[in-house]
Write a protein that binds this DNA or RNA. Structure first.
Length: 347
DNA sequence: AAGTCGGGGAA
DNA sequence: TTCCCAGACTT
C-alpha cells in the first residue's frame, strides 16, 4: 500500500500553506484549525493567525479578545483557548519548543490522539499513526470494514492499521497521503475509484459497495431552542457582553440576552434575562426580527428586540465583561455568526 | 458510549 | 434537506 500511496501523493498532493513549512508550531496550528473543519475554510484563518501570532511566545502572550478575533467564525472556540494554554505550557516547561513525541504532545490541552500523531509524524518524522474521518473512510473501504465505524472495536482496528502504515519511511507523507486520498478521491458519497491508486487492492471496490461505506448509525436531530437578544442604546452607544469562557461560544461577544423558556413570550424573556443577568430593567420593547443558527446539537432561533431600559448601571452575573460601543466598535468585536446576524437586524 | 462544542460546503 | 469535515474532552 505504501509505495502506491507515496507515488500518487508525490504527483497529486495539493499545494497547501502548511505543506510549505516544517515549523512544528505552524503545523500544530494548522492541525488544530483543521479539527472538524475543511481545508478551504481554514486557509484564510491560518494565514491571518500566523501573521498575528508567529511564534509560541507570541501566542502565549495573546490577549483573550485579540485571540478570539482571529478565531471568530471558525467554530469550536475552545480550540483557541486551548492553543493559548498549551503555548504557555510549552514556554514554561519546554523552553518554547513543541514536544517531539506523541506522549509529550498528548499532555498539551486540546491535543488528542489525532493531533499528537499528526504533529509527531509530519513535523518530527516519527512513525506515529493518525486516524481522522478521511483515514477511517479510506480504511473502511480498503479493508472492507462493514461495522459501525464509531464502535470501539472498529476504532481499535483502524488505529492498528494506521500504526502499521506509519511504520514505513516518510510517515508524515504516508499519513497525509491517506487523508489526501479521502479528501479528493475516496470521498463520502461518490468515490472516484477509477482515479484511485489503491483501486486494485480495495475490498469495497471489488465488492461494489464503496459508496455505502463506512457504516454509521444515524445521528439525532439537533434540539430546537429559542433565545432572545437585546439592542440597547444609550447616548448612541450599544451594549455588548462577553460570554464566559468554556461553554457554548465561550469568549465571544454578543447582544445581551438569554434563553427563552417554553411558554414565555420574547418580551417576557428579554425582560427577565436583562434583570437576572445584567441588573437592568426593561421599560419597553420592539421586535426587530429573528435569526437562526444550526449547531451540531442545537437549532437556535434568536429573537432580537430593541429595548429601552431604566437608567441604572450594569451589574453583571454570567457575562464576564460588557462594553458600550459605537456601531463600528460593535462590529469589530469577536462575534459568532449568530451574533453577527442579530446585530445586522438592528441597523 | 453518549453528549458537548460551530460553521459551512457539497450533493 | 442531509451529511460530515485533518477531533477533543467530559460525563
Amino acid at each position: 500500500m505504501r509505495g502506491a500511496l507515496l507515488r500518487w501523493y508525490d504527483r497529486e498532493a495539493r499545494d497547501l500553506p502548511w505543506r510549505r513549512t516544517r515549523d512544528p508550531y505552524e503545523i500544530w496550528i494548522s492541525e488544530t484549525m483543521l479539527q472538524q473543519t475543511r481545508v478551504d475554510t481554514v486557509i484564510p484563518y491560518y494565514e491571518r493567525f500566523l501573521e498575528r501570532f508567529p511564534t509560541v511566545e507570541s501566542l502565549a502572550d495573546a490577549d483573550a479578545d485579540d485571540l478570539m478575533e482571529h478565531w471568530a467564525g471558525l467554530g469550536y472556540y475552545r480550540r483557541a483557548r486551548n492553543l493559548r494554554a498549551a503555548a504557555r505550557q510549552i514556554v514554561e516547561h519546554h523552553h518554547g519548543d513543541l514536544p517531539d513525541e506523541v506522549d509529550g504532545l498528548l499532555s498539551l490541552p486540546g491535543v488528542g490522539r489525532y493531533t499528537a500523531g499528526a504533529v509527531a509524524s509530519i513535523a518530527f518524522d516519527r512513525p506515529a499513526p493518525i486516524v481522522d474521518g478521511n483515514v477511517a473512510r479510506v480504511f473502511a473501504r480498503f479493508f472492507g470494514i462493514r461495522q459501525d465505524i464509531l464502535a470501539a472495536s472498529v476504532q481499535a482496528r483502524l488505529w492498528q492499521e494506521a500504526e502499521t502504515l506509519a511504520r514505513g519511511r516518510r510517515p508524515g507523507d504516508l499519513n497525509q497521503a491517506v487523508m489526501e486520498l479521502g479528501a479528493t478521491i475516496c470521498t463520502p458519497r461518490a468515490p472516484e475509484c477509477a482515479r484511485c491508486p489503491l483501486e486494485r487492492r480495495c475490498n469495497a471496490h471489488e465488492a461494489g459497495d464503496a459508496a455505502a461505506l463506512p457504516f454509521k448509525a444515524a445521528r439525532k436531530a439537533p434540539k430546537r431552542v429559542a433565545a432572545v437578544a437585546a439592542r440597547i442604546t444609550r447616548n448612541g452607544r450599544h451594549l455588548a457582553a462577553r460570554r464566559p469562557p468554556g461553554g457554548l461560544l465561550g469568549g465571544l461577544w454578543e447582544l445581551p440576552g438569554g434563553e427563552l423558556v417554553s411558554g414565555e413570550t420574547p418580551e417576557a424573556a428579554i425582560s427577565r434575562n436583562l434583570r437576572e443577568r445584567l441588573g437592568l430593567t426593561a421599560k419597553s420593547c420592539k421586535t426587530l426580527g429573528s435569526v437562526e443558527q444550526v449547531f451540531t446539537h442545537r437549532h437556535l432561533e434568536l429573537h432580537v428586540l430593541r429595548v429601552e431600559t431604566a437608567g441604572g448601571r450594569v451589574r453583571r452575573r454570567e457575562y464576564d465583561a460588557h462594553r458600550w460601543l459605537s456601531e463600528r466598535g460593535l462590529n469589530a468585536l469577536p462575534l459568532s455568526r449568530i451574533a453577527q446576524k442579530a446585530i445586522a437586524l438592528g441597523r
